[in-house]
Nucleic acid binder design. Structure first.
Lengths: 349, 349
DNA sequence: TTGAAAGCGGTACCAG
DNA sequence: CTGGTACCGCTTTCAA
């Protein structure tokens, strides 16, 4: 490929130029360049045109093509915040699969701001994207549902809605929680706390609910204060929440958290209380973000296959687009507990 | 905003619909909706049209608009690998600024594969993007230079070319290295090793060169083996490189690395050699990626303002686009050493 | 198998 | 200030 045309800067060769150079009609050139096998074009003509196109460095104008065909090979991807460590693999997985199918990814980071989200969405829609992948959906957000009603194919990535069934690729949080809980129970812990992330996302909510259900179904009981919903996603939120619990005489000997950052906050709270992890308090994180194996102590956590979630989300959308029918399938992947050094057997109490 | 039109799914209202609804001519509707202040339109007409547009949920078709105006408010952003921890802030910064100026970000992750890069690039070019931000440039890569010649405005993000001066936003690596080196020298270290990342990127290269220059300009000498270029960017690469050095009787007492992952690899090598960090060997990383403050020991490293680099890259490109002239300005930001626990005073030797 | 021509949804120029 | 109209680059139907 070469962009070193001798023509004036910015003057990209058009199909007309190619046709002229090949000595054929515009329409013929179009057909010759088309991949559709049903086009009746003489092989010699095809060769001629293709050659001319290559020589001129012709790149078809997707804008013109889209206008004419009403089909735009572009997918909008909405991300709440790229600095959240679970997002990069999600985006990477989605973009890779989309590109593989010839789609361009229109990327937008909403910075967790609903107003920004609306603006970005309008922008994407103005491009007449073929579909949308949303990693921004909140449980109660009507936005995604509205989009679906408007006819734009939408797939939710790593999130779901409470009320409306929108195709999604998520993770079976109950499996992750069951494994995490099973692990600390096996280690002999009985006073177990759960520090949930904020509950606007389905993932965070499902984790907390799964914890409650698991506790109940195993016939265990816990002080109600042991299940807490934090105000934010950060280390401080986890630290603050756990600090309140460590003061109690019946303090928890193990704590499960809704994400890894909060788990690291627990490390701080434990240290501040003059205790140690895992000797005094075991900690289990969630997500298995990078470097959790390097912190001190290495974090036991639930590994979530985010790259696959992204890839599957793209796959699902591409399928919907291709089959043109309303397959409202959803996909659910399975997380897996990774045991490291932040959990240990409960002391004889 | 609402997408709940009563019309058949997929039938987005067009400007003609708006004009009809407002009882004005198509061209008038266009003018009324235009932001250009020079348009002579009666205020009442504007109100009428805007109202009709809102009622119908009209979103202008960017594709049609672009075709007509030859101006596409879209910028392609090429990333080598989103799972590299320096990339998310870069992308986030760029996208935020671009959106602020009304540009849509066309995102592509090339997976560090030149073939994929070419394909993705063609895809972006077919969209007639107004400009390109490349975080993929290698020092010798003619690709970026070709692009510039072809007339597409290009800005390099966090990278530069050896031969061709392309506008870029980078970091003054010599400052980072000088600070890191100054720090360990002050701590009394004299046998200092440098483990460089692969040298295809300007950043990695400049760091290594800066180290050599700094050593020389301070009148120090080092065994030539103390400056090594690793084969990859990973922990293993750093570990392997340092392991070879720790065997020597004159083993280094401090090591600077080209990135944080390699620094963590050094931790492993030091441990394997039966030594300790920082007591026996001090380690300085580069980038200050997330959680480096949480590893054991907390990593002393050079903090690079990647979010700003991304934002400035977008700013630079937007300026080029607006001023329409060939400002070939480049921007250079300054990194800053963050001292943590992986460096300590050299022992009396 | 190829040429001719319509038209996608806007913008911008020109006339009124 | 508003209406009429050419046209951006390409695909596609219809004739030749």
């Amino acid at each position: 490929m070469t962009w070193e045309t001798a023509e004036p800067v910015g003057a990209k060769p058009t199909l007309r130029d190619v046709a002229l150079a090949a000595g054929v009609h515009l329409a013929t050139a179009s057909r010759a360049l088309s991949d559709a096998p049903s086009r009746p074009v003489a092989p010699r003509t095809v060769a001629l045109v293709r050659q001319a196109a290559a020589r001129l460095g012709y790149v078809p104008d997707q804008v013109a093509r889209s206008l004419r065909t009403h089909r735009t090979p572009a997918i909008g991807v909405l991300i709440p915040d790229m600095s959240n460590p679970v997002m990069p693999p999600l985006v990477r997985g989605a973009e890779q699969r989309l590109a593989q199918y010839g789609y361009t990814t229109l990327f937008a980071d909403t910075d967790n701001d609903p107003a920004a989200e609306t603006k970005r969405l309008t922008m994407l829609l103005s491009w007449r994207v073929a579909g949308l992948i949303l990693a921004t959906a909140r449980r109660d957000q009507p936005l995604a549902a509205e989009l679906v009603n408007s006819g734009v194919p939408v797939v939710l990535m790593s999130r779901k809605l409470d009320a409306t069934p929108v195709p999604s690729v998520t993770v079976d949080e109950s499996v992750g929680i069951a494994q995490a809980l099973g692990h600390v129970l096996e280690l002999g812990h009985r006073r177990i706390a759960y520090l949930g992330v904020p509950q606007w996302t389905s993932a965070g909510h499902e984790r907390l609910v799964a914890f409650r259900d698991n506790i109940a179904s195993r016939g265990l009981t816990l002080p109600p204060e042991f299940v807490v919903t934090c105000a934010g996603y950060g280390e401080q939120d986890g630290a603050a929440a756990l600090a309140g619990l460590l003061d109690r005489p019946d303090r928890p000997t193990a704590v499960l958290t809704g994400n890894d950052m909060m788990a690291l906050g627990c490390y701080d709270a434990i240290r501040s209380a003059g205790l140690r992890c895992p000797e005094d308090v075991s900690v289990v994180g969630y997500n298995d973000m990078p470097l959790t194996d390097r912190v001190d102590p290495p974090l036991t956590t639930v590994r979530v296959p985010y790259f696959d979630v992204g890839r599957q989300a793209a796959t699902l959308l591409v399928e919907k687009l291709a089959e043109a029918n309303d397959i409202d399938r959803s996909v659910r992947l399975t997380p897996r507990l990774v045991v490291r050094g932040s959990t240990a057997a409960a002391r004889a109490s």
